[in-house]
Nucleic acid binder design. Structure first.
Lengths: 242, 242
DNA sequence: GGTCAATAGATTTTCGAAAATCTATTTGAT
DNA sequence: ATCAAATAGATTTTCGAAAATCTATTGACC
């Protein structure tokens, strides 16, 4: 029942539960709006209150968790409005990061991008066999590919912002997959995008990236509208007295 | 010696120490790179370890604090490189937010902007009398003015990013003021910027904003280069044994 | 029946001490 | 003298219980 990722014991419990919680939220093993009771999390992750609350505070700053004074934490709510806001902002941020990256990228960047694409396309094939069981691996390769695109942008600040928005978007994607199955086979899209990037066709790459995000938005928004029940009022109330 | 802001007791200690710490870091009452020992902070803010560590974790996500595993927290380091990265990113973000805000802003937005400018210009006058003693008040009005500019941008995500970057920049400004005194009298700059915004002269407002940030960057970068000693190696070592 | 205060249980928040880890210094061997 | 292991003190990290707060329900009163 508890999360799978066994962490190397060289980390502090704090760091360990932070990455586990983040992962559980992004993949919607912890559903949007779900209450995060300290006692329940203590049991789930097997540790005391301190590291858990510390991790939750950090995730609050990242926007994955919300805290109401004296009422505790819950997973951030999802909504059409914030999905659209998120994706709109993502497009702007990635546009800038991509432009900078194409201006600065050298041979190393090109090599890493090619590598990331290769891993992603392989992973896609594997997934087609295993259905959507281990799509966690795909998700990681997918994230890596998009990170590789902007890796040469030269701005740690911009990259950090981009990564955070990508994570938030990933949560919506996970939610969509849960109700409607895998989004679509977009190996082609990624390949096009990579080619434009490697050829330094800046405006084309930016436009492809924008379309890539917009297509995801449409798909996710649709399944969010359809599967309204999911994610709304999920374990919203307090534990019933026996 | 401890921070002045007396917090209303309706907040949790956690929320209280969070805002105090954030303020102390942004104003450089806690200097860049200064170690943040839990015991010292316990004394400074008068509470136990839990709320303090929770606040520190949150500030780490905001980029004001850095955590090294098993070695504790310290105020984030400052550097020419990260200053330039920060300002460059700020320009891009504020450009987008400003554009959206000028597209969407209604009468309410205009009124609030005028009000914010009025308070800022009044505050500037008061400050000229009291030297740089209570420049904290000016800093607040200044932040409010820039927030008012983009308040109609319609994107909570973009506004949150902008606010965070502004805070980070404010820390550099505070550092600069500490060594070189008040930056400059930029009432005129703010007035120009407001007028362009109210007249919906989008490109002009964006350019003025860019110049506003660039001028600040130049000034701050210069005093950072000059006063190298400040902020470097400040209480960097471990407490000496008696 | 409806409203409001009192109560009890659940939950969050906070504390202070214990455990784990790091760092500087001393000690001992080569 | 040099290096490495051992030690001691400082510091971080974690725990579990106590205090504070919230929420649902009961019961009194109109």
């Amino acid at each position: 029942m508890s999360s799978s990722l066994a962490k190397s014991n060289s980390q502090t419990l704090n760091a360990s539960v932070l990455s586990q919680l983040r992962s559980d939220i992004i993949t919607c093993r912890l559903m949007p709006n779900e209450r995060l009771r300290v006692e329940a999390l203590r049991e789930r992750y097997g540790m005391g209150t301190s590291p858990i609350r510390e991790a939750l505070m950090r995730l609050e700053a990242e926007g994955l968790v919300e805290l109401e004074q004296n009422k505790g934490f819950r997973v951030s709510e999802v909504s059409q409005a914030s999905l659209r806001d998120l994706m709109r902002t993502r497009i702007e941020i990635e546009t800038i990061a991509l432009r900078w990256s194409l201006e600065n990228g050298g041979v190393e960047w090109e090599a890493n991008l090619l590598g990331a694409f290769h891993r992603l396309s392989r992973q896609t094939k594997i997934d087609r066999v295993n259905s959507d069981a281990i799509s966690g691996a795909w998700s990681r390769e997918h994230a890596d590919f998009h990170a590789a695109l902007v890796a040469a942008c030269g701005s740690p600040t911009m990259m950090a912002i981009r990564a955070r928005l990508f994570e938030q978007a990933d949560r919506y994607v996970a939610l969509s997959i849960m109700s409607n199955g895998p989004l679509r086979d977009d190996v082609g899209e990624h390949k096009q995008l990579m080619r434009a990037a490697l050829n330094r066709e800046v405006e084309k790459a930016i436009e492809l990236n924008r379309l890539h995000i917009m297509r995801t938005l449409d798909k996710v928004a649709a399944s969010l509208a359809a599967g309204k029940a999911i994610g709304e009022n999920h374990m919203t109330g307090r534990k019933r007295t026996p």
